[in-house]
């Protein structure tokens, strides 16, 4: 049999499938409607915020400053200095503490430690570091992050167009199977102008930073291999662009307009299958053995 005959034989497809394929359409949401709705929401929020901001000045008069001997405040209108005679009742009876006092909590969050090299400040959640916790058990075992699922799948020999993200078969199946109950350790091949770009390139590093800014956990892994050839030594660096992603982060992947992404499970990317169902990393919810 040849392809043209097989094409004819496609007429044997079940009528119910034919009808279903005709009726099914996943139309893109109307962008204008979406942004219109967003704008409307923002207006409502802004109006609400304005109302809340204005309201106290109408219903609640400003709270005067504590009347301590010799204390004065500036009158808001005539800038004239006035002295208060009575301590207003509205003031709390407990002592008021300010910055510098013991127990004072600043409403402004304390900034975290500055990373040593901000350009490479990818978050690498310690809870998910590998410690050799491999699992070859049943699917019912508790897992918190997976890096493989089933057999390694074949990557199609084609570039991914800019703004698009393609998932490997195994990743899609894993997501279907586990949903949002686990994190996914994924490996990404990046494409630009129809060509795969190095994960160690400047563009890839910028992309890693962009995804980090969007709360993705990016791990740009580097492996350096040194070979001693006697007279000379060569050093080759290999870069892995990987994510520890939540289900939703993959499902609604925030692709950049200038890059195409082929996203696969980590085991597929590295070509190492650790077990039939993939490596499981021990973390806060340890593997139940």
């Amino acid at each position: 049999m040849r392809g043209n005959e097989f094409l004819d034989k496609m007429e044997l497809i079940d009528p119910a499938y034919i009808e279903a394929a005709e009726n099914k359409q996943n139309k893109r949401k109307n962008t204008w409607a979406k942004y219109g709705a967003l704008a409307a929401c923002l207006c409502v929020v802004a109006a609400g915020a304005f109302a809340i901001y204005k309201e106290p000045s109408v219903q609640n008069p400003p709270i005067p400053a504590p009347d301590l001997p010799g204390t004065s405040v500036t009158h808001p209108i005539n800038t004239e200095m006035i002295n208060r005679e009575d301590r207003p009742e509205i003031l709390p009876t407990h002592p008021v503490i300010g910055p510098g006092d013991e127990g004072y909590i600043s409403p402004i969050p304390t900034p975290g430690p500055v990373p040593e090299n901000p350009q490479y400040s990818f978050i690498y959640d310690g809870a998910f570091e590998t410690d050799g916790a491999f699992d070859t058990g049943e699917l019912s075992d508790v897992r918190n992050m997976i890096s493989g699922f089933g057999e390694l799948t074949q990557k199609p020999d084609m570039a991914v167009e800019e703004g698009g993200a393609c998932f490997s078969d195994a990743l899609e199946e894993a997501m279907e199977h586990y949903g949002d109950t686990v994190r996914y350790r994924v490996f990404i091949d990046l494409y630009s102008d129809g060509v795969q770009i190095s994960s160690g390139s400047e563009q890839a590093i910028e992309e890693a930073q962009r995804l980090c800014d969007m709360d993705y956990i990016v791990a740009l892994e580097t492996f350096t291999q040194t070979e001693d050839h006697g007279e000379y030594v060569t050093t080759n660096a290999t870069y892995y662009f990987t994510l520890h992603a939540e289900y939703e982060q993959l499902k609604n992947f925030a692709a950049a307009e200038n890059l195409g992404y082929y996203i696969m499970l980590y085991d597929e990317g590295t070509g190492i299958s650790s077990s039939s169902y993939g490596v499981v990393f021990s973390g806060s919810a340890a593997v139940d053995k």
């Binding site: 099914k24 996943n26 893109r28 799948t153 199609p156 084609m158 991914v160 167009e161 993200a165 393609c166």
Partner: peptide, 16 residues
């Protein structure tokens, strides 16, 4: 267009 996905994804899906 019908399924609101990229052409690459369609090609990949068909290939598989």
């Amino acid at each position: 267009k019908r399924f609101a996905m990229s052409e690459s994804k369609v090609k990949t899906t068909l290939f598989r």
